[in-house]
Structure formats: C-alpha cells, structure tokens
Simulated scan of single mutants.
Amino acid sequence: MASSNQTKLAIGFMLLASLALSMTARAEQKETLGDWDVHYIAFNSTFITPDIAKHYAIVRSKYNGVINISILDKQTQEAQSAVLTGTARNLLGVSKKLTFKEISEGDAIYYLAVLPFSDQETFRIAVDINDGANKQVLNFQHKFYAE
C-alpha cells in the first residue's frame, strides 16, 4: 500500500512540475546561464495538494511561496544536479535566506525553496547555482499575493 501511495505522490508532484514548467513556458521564465538553461517559477504553496505538500515537507499557507528551479544542459536538455543557495530581498531591503531541497523524480531534477511573504510583497531573488565546475547566478523578481 505504501508503494501505491508513493506512486500517487510521485505522479502528483510530476503533474505539479509539469504545470510549473508549462506556466514557465508561457511566461518565458527561463534564463540561459553559461551551459545551462535554467527554468524557474514562484507560486503560492496553496497550489500544491495537501498530500504532495506533506510528502515534500512543504507547509501550505496563503503566506508561503514556493520557488521551483530546474537546470537543464543547454545542448542536451538533460536535467543537471547542482547546489543552490539564495536570498530573497524585499523592497524594504529585508533579506531572507532560501534553502533549496533537491527533488529527483525519474530523469527530472527540481529544486524547491519555501519563502514566507506578506500579501503583495515583492522580492528580488538571487540564486547561486554551483555544480562544482560551473557557478552562475540567477536573478529575478516576483510579487506574491495571499490567496
């Protein structure tokens, strides 16, 4: 039975990841950094189902955002493993550390970080990406809304 639940969770997360990537494709939230295509999206944690949130230890709240990043080799489009660290600085200059968790599902690798926010809070986000051989910085801005 546990295997069936794990399969359901994996499928659910892959659907979430597909949604995130399709939203990314529409919004063109992709940066080419060196040899990588870095796809990123920020969204409210309430978009994640309770089962998936529990499985990945994400607290669902209208005041928690999730940052989802995937790194692909620019030539082969294969998922890349790296170490991600980052900060989110609001417009008042208050900085919050981002802690990313690597999620591997089949050939896909995603990095998730939870970011607490206030309604209509805008963050300038900087993520350091390091695979041991290459280092790049992804910068973007996102405004979160409580739902």
Score class of each variant (00 low, 15 high):
Ser3His: 11
Phe100Leu: 14
Val66Tyr: 06
Ala57Phe: 12
Asn5Arg: 11
Gly132Phe: 00
Gln29Cys: 07
Ser22Met: 04
Ser104Thr: 15
Ile103Ser: 03
Leu98Asn: 08
Thr76Leu: 06
Glu147Trp: 04
Gln120Thr: 06
Leu21Val: 09
Leu16His: 07
Ile69Ala: 09
Thr7Ile: 07
Thr32Tyr: 06
Met14Cys: 08
Ala126Trp: 02
Ala108Asn: 13
Asn64Gln: 12
Leu84Asn: 14
Gln141Gly: 05
Ile125Asp: 03
Lys96Gly: 09
Asp37Ala: 08
Lys30Asn: 12
Phe47Ile: 05
Gly132Cys: 02
His39Leu: 15
Ala108Phe: 13
Ile41Pro: 01
Tyr40Ser: 04
Ala53Tyr: 10
Leu98Phe: 03
Glu102Gly: 06
Thr85Arg: 13
Glu105His: 13
Lys54Tyr: 08
Pro116Arg: 05
Ser4Lys: 11
Ile41Arg: 10
Ala126Cys: 08
Leu33Arg: 00
Gly86Asn: 09
Ala133Pro: 02
Thr49Ile: 00
Phe100Arg: 14
Lys74Ala: 07
Glu147Thr: 14
Leu138Cys: 02
Ala113Trp: 07
Leu115Trp: 00
His142Gly: 14
Met14Gly: 04
Lys30Gly: 07
Gly132Gln: 09
Glu147His: 13
Asp128Thr: 10
Leu15Pro: 10
Gly132Trp: 03
Ile41Leu: 14
Ala25Glu: 14
Ala42Trp: 03
Ile67Val: 06
Ala2Gln: 11
Ser22His: 14
Val83Met: 01
Ala25Cys: 08
Leu98Gly: 04
Ile109Thr: 05
Ser118Asn: 11
Ala2Cys: 09
Gly65Leu: 04
Leu84Arg: 15
Ser70Thr: 11
Tyr56Lys: 00
Asp73Leu: 01
Phe144Pro: 00
His142Ala: 06
Lys135Ser: 12
Phe140Ile: 00
Gln75Met: 09
Asn134Met: 05
Leu138Met: 04
Asn134His: 14
Asp131Ser: 14
Phe140Asp: 02
Asp37Glu: 09
Ser3Leu: 07
Val38Met: 03
Ile58Gly: 05
Gln141Thr: 15
Leu21Arg: 11
Trp36Thr: 07
Arg89Glu: 13
Met1Glu: 07
Ala146Gln: 05
Ala108Gly: 10
Thr76Trp: 10
Tyr56Trp: 12
Tyr111Thr: 04
Leu33Asp: 04
Tyr63Asp: 11
